[in-house]
């Protein structure tokens, strides 16, 4: 549980830091003149969806940190056997990195208002992501073929669980990606999709990071 505690401590620290920033030591009972400077009111200079995404990422972080803690605690039991990780995971990792790069590139294109590049970038990112998901399924397939089912041993069960939850998060991202891409293909102007592209980019980088951590944890403990 130490991992979770540390992660949560970090999240709570951010929360408290943020709340302290508009200074908790103002004296609200002293009448003040109207406040002109919106910054002084403690609002972040960001659109609400971005803040919303940030909060959601905190929730997802809590989820994955708890899973990793659970993994470590379960490892301590006597029946733990190490899992032979399928090689294809390395390839998948590379593909997921490429999708992140494509997203980043799309974001830059959106800022430069180049709708054609945005279109290409989004499609590339989508293709890479779908390949990643297909690759993960392939890894499942290989494990299955090698006789490792969820039931076989806890390491395998955790492998399926972690990859499934990560994949589901990506699928959720693909929903937003799909809506954004559809709008780009229908020919809306760049300004209308810039925010969505930015949100997707942040989310993709986040899920890449999560995958790298999960992969590292799995690698660290495999045979």
């Amino acid at each position: 549980m130490t991992t979770s505690l540390l992660v949560l401590a970090a999240i709570m620290a951010v929360v408290v830091w943020w709340l302290l920033r508009p200074t908790l030591n103002v004296k609200p009972w002293v009448e003040q003149r109207p406040i002109k400077n919106v910054d002084a009111e403690g609002t972040l200079p960001l659109p609400p969806v971005k803040v919303g995404l940030g909060v959601f990422l905190a929730v997802a972080t809590s989820l994955f940190a708890l899973l990793i803690s659970a993994y470590h605690m379960r490892m301590m039991a006597a029946d733990w056997t190490h899992l032979a990780l399928p090689r294809v995971l390395w390839l998948n990792t590379g593909v997921l990195i490429l999708s992140g790069v494509a997203m980043q590139w799309t974001r830059a294109a959106a800022q430069r208002e180049q709708i054609d590049s945005v279109r290409i970038g989004l499609i590339a990112a989508g293709v890479f992501t779908v390949s990643f998901l297909a690759g993960q399924l392939w890894a499942w397939q290989q494990l299955n073929a090698a006789g490792y089912f969820v039931k076989t041993d806890p390491a395998t069960a955790f492998f399926y669980l972690l990859t499934a939850l990560h994949g589901l998060h990506l699928l959720g991202g693909m929903y937003v990606w799909g809506r954004t891409t559809a709008r780009v293909l229908r020919g809306v102007e760049v300004g209308k999709v810039r925010l969505s592209v930015e949100l997707c980019t942040v989310y993709w980088h986040y899920l890449l990071l999560v995958w790298l951590v999960l992969f590292a944890v799995l690698l660290h403990t495999h045979s």
Binding site: P28, E41, F56
Partner: peptide, 24 residues
């Protein structure tokens, strides 16, 4: 709940009216 919760947090953080500081 997570869907609702995102709303509650972001509304308090970002949608306060003018002059409504956190400490008010």
């Amino acid at each position: 709940f997570t869907m609702g919760g995102l709303n509650y947090v972001v509304t308090v953080l970002q949608a306060r009216t003018r002059g409504m500081t956190m400490m008010r």
